[in-house]
Computed example of a mutant assay.
Amino acid sequence: MFRHSIRTLLVGLCTLTAASQAATAVALAVPLDHHRATRTAARVLHTQTLSDLTAAMKGEAFAHASYTLFGAQADREAQSAVGELFRTTAQTELNEHLHEAATLAGTVGTNAANLRQAIDGETYEHQVMYRGFADQARQDGDLEAADLFTEIAADEGRHRDAFRTAFTVVTTGRGTIPAPPNADMVPVPEGMPKVKAARTKANLDTAMHGEALAHANYMLFAERAQQTGNPELARLFEGTAGVELHEHFAEEAVLAGLVRTTKTNLDKAITGEHNEATTLYPGFAKRATAVGDTAAAGYFRDTAADEAKHQAAFQQALDELH
């Protein structure tokens, strides 16, 4: 997996949000006693540990989204085994690594708390982040990126409004949860960046990380809504998650030139996994150990070991590539 972030939780899932939600967070798919223990641990996690867990979530979400696209490119090159390797690794990053980090950080709360996180994130992206990115891209002559950022800003405003309506329904019991948006599947072929300014490239990277993390967290929020008997809210979160990944992330990936040849994609994956296995996660583990956050330290160590295995698998695939 690689690193940097992203977006709505660039936004709603920043470290301070994670810290504030931790007090009421509900871990998913765990027994009640363990759930209570996890919430207690989340309440007392050191600020740096929470920050590192958020960074881990951003990286894992971005890896999931990127590896999914890399898998599709491998299929186009008739490298089906490599495509499957990318897809299975993507699922590990999302369904194991990110999920475990979210549980430790107390990311998921009540339906109302989850909606508030989503509203805050979408508001920031609608009013501040994407509008600012559009202005900068226009100044730098990247007009296609400016148009995309403007379009996504409008989408995020609609997402915010839908979540606001849902929040009223959840907190008052009156009204109807909005229908979920429909995501258009945007293909991401191999290609070079379509923007020229370094600032636009950096903003695209930030935006892609944000969209990937928004997708991941909204899927967690959807799971929570289903668990609490609110399928309409679950569908709203799932539909919005689909837009973030299959439209926003994909459109940004096209402009950024994220997907290259399978050989290049494997090289990139190997570099990312090596950094996580040898530097990023061991550093997180060391900091967590120093402040007594032993559960988080164990998670970071275990994830580092997994990433080393991913690196080895990608290296083998590259060595065998024909």
Rank of each mutant, 00 (worst) to 15 (best):
E238W: 00
T228H: 13
R235G: 01
P231D: 05
T206V: 10
P231T: 06
K201E: 10
L236N: 09
Q227A: 14
L236H: 11
A222H: 05
E223P: 04
N217F: 10
H215I: 05
E244K: 07
H209S: 14
R224W: 04
Y218E: 04
N217A: 10
R224F: 01
H209G: 13
H209D: 09
G229A: 00
A234W: 01
T240L: 11
P231H: 06
L220R: 13
A222Y: 09
A234G: 08
A225T: 12
E211M: 03
G229K: 00
G239V: 14
N230V: 11
N203C: 00
Q227N: 15
M208W: 02
Y218A: 10
P231Q: 05
A222P: 09
P231C: 08
A222C: 15
T206H: 11
V243I: 07
G229E: 02
N203F: 04
N230T: 15
A234L: 06
F221A: 05
A234M: 01
G242P: 07
N203H: 15
Q227K: 08
A207Q: 06
A225E: 01
T200L: 00
T228S: 05
A225R: 11
A202T: 09
Y218S: 14
H215C: 08
G210D: 14
A212N: 07
G210L: 10
N203Q: 13
G239F: 15
F221Q: 13
Y218N: 10
T228W: 02
L236M: 09
L220Y: 09
R235E: 15
L213Y: 11
L213D: 05
A202H: 08
E238F: 06
F237D: 06
R235N: 12
H215V: 03
M219T: 15
L236D: 13
G242M: 07
A202P: 01
E211P: 02
D205E: 14
P231W: 10
V243W: 06
T200I: 02
T200Q: 14
A241E: 03
Q226G: 06
Q227H: 01
L204C: 07
L204D: 01
Q227I: 01
A214Q: 07
A202V: 13
F237S: 09
A202Y: 12
A222Q: 06
F237G: 13
G239M: 07
T200H: 01
E223S: 12
A241Y: 11
D205K: 14
T228G: 14
M219N: 02
E232W: 06
E232F: 03
M219Y: 01
A214F: 00
D205A: 12
L236G: 11
E244T: 03
T228R: 08
L213H: 12
K201H: 04
L233E: 03
H209P: 12
A212W: 05
M208E: 06
L204Y: 05
A234I: 00
H209T: 13
T206C: 03
A216G: 07
H215T: 14
A241G: 11
A214L: 08
A225I: 05
T200E: 09
L213M: 15
G210W: 00
L233P: 06
N203L: 07
A216E: 07
A207V: 02
G242Y: 04
N230F: 01
M208T: 03
T228C: 05
M208I: 08
N230P: 00
A214K: 02
A216T: 15
D205R: 15
